[in-house]
């Protein structure tokens, strides 16, 4: 492949996106931070070990499919950072459960959806995904 000007532009913009994505800092609201603290008891929360699947763009904020999976987790909490009250649900898994699940949630607008899990060894992990919402789903 010869490096034409068009190819150079495509490569350049792709590289730009790649460097931007990991830098996307997750800045939670005060209410969300309070909920995270209540869940973890103030313990440090690290990244990784948990997976959250959300649509990039949700046309209707009334039902946004969300899928989480945290192998080996005892408890998982889902938060919607930009909702009037961030709590969405808390799931406690027994020995038989595989700590994954799918739910449909309401989102008031474009925001971060956060999942936090307590692992079997007592450590906490979290993941955040941004969902763009076209029509919010919290009513008037």
């Amino acid at each position: 492949m010869s490096l034409t000007r068009r190819n150079a532009l495509v490569l350049g913009s792709a590289a730009f996106v790649v460097t931007l994505v990991p830098l996307h800092a997750f800045a939670a609201s005060e209410k969300t931070m309070a909920d995270i603290k209540a869940f973890s008891g103030g313990a440090a929360v690290s990244n990784g070990g948990i997976d959250l699947t959300t649509p990039e763009i949700a046309e209707n904020g009334n039902t946004v499919p969300v899928q989480f999976s945290a192998p080996g987790a005892k408890r998982v909490m889902i938060l919607a950072d930009g909702n009037p009250s961030p709590g969405v649900g808390t799931f406690n898994f027994g020995a038989l459960g595989d700590a994954s699940g799918s739910i449909r949630i309401r989102l008031a607008g474009t925001q971060d959806v956060v999942a936090i899990a307590e692992m079997a060894d007592g450590t906490y992990v979290q993941i955040a995904k941004t969902v763009k919402v076209t029509i919010g789903g919290c009513g008037g």
Binding site: N62, T63, V64, A80, N83, S85, G87, V88, G89, T90, F91, N92, F93, G94, A95, L96, G97, G101, I103, R104, I105, R106, L107, G137
Partner: peptide, 16 residues
Amino acid sequence: ENVVSAKFEPAISTNP
């Protein structure tokens, strides 16, 4: 034996 027990908040959609 408990498989999963969940607490739902109002942010769960209609027809959960």
